[in-house]
Structure formats: structure tokens, C-alpha cells
């Protein structure tokens, strides 16, 4: 294999691993920040969604 081919082969592997590890790390960080389930982009992610923040008892009288 040509040197350029080796470089791009390695880059492809690093990119793929980096993406997978990065996404997993991102989800873990989001969960620790209380935005662990959703990222749906909906307006409820501003604070009213159970998937995006830890459930707070008593807010809605229940």
C-alpha cells in the first residue's frame, strides 16, 4: 500500500473510533448534567421534560 493509502486508512479507523467514543462520552456528560435522555430539540428540553432533567417532585402538585 502507498504511504498516502496507509495514512488515510489509519485516519479512517481513528475517525470511526473517535466518533463512537465521542458520542458515548457526550451522552454520559449530558446525563450527568441532567439532560440525559432526549436531545430531541423540542421546547420541553428547556426544562419541562423528564428525559432532559431529573424529575422534580412537587413541581406540578403530584
Amino acid at each position: 500500500m502507498e504511504p498516502l493509502g496507509i495514512v488515510f486508512t489509519v485516519l479512517a479507523a481513528v475517525l470511526a473510533v473517535g466518533i463512537v467514543v465521542g458520542v458515548i462520552a457526550y451522552r454520559i456528560v449530558q446525563k450527568k448534567r441532567g439532560r440525559g435522555g432526549c436531545d430531541c430539540g423540542c421546547d420541553c428540553c428547556s426544562g419541562g421534560c423528564h428525559a432532559c432533567r431529573a424529575a422534580r417532585k412537587g413541581d406540578d402538585g403530584r
Binding site: 500500500m1 502507498e2 498516502l4 493509502g5 488515510f8 486508512t9 479512517a12 475517525l15 470511526a16 466518533i19
Partner: peptide
């Protein structure tokens, strides 16, 4: 582009199809 670089077949498949 990937084919022109001469990257390994699996790397081309990974980028083209996987990513």
C-alpha cells in the same frame, strides 16, 4: 477521493458506507 488515496478496501467501505 478515498479510492484515489489508495486506502485499504475496508477503510474505503468504512468511510463510504459506515460513516
Amino acid at each position: 477521493g478515498m479510492a484515489a488515496t489508495g486506502a485499504a478496501a475496508w477503510a474505503q467501505g468504512l468511510v463510504n458506507d459506515g460513516i
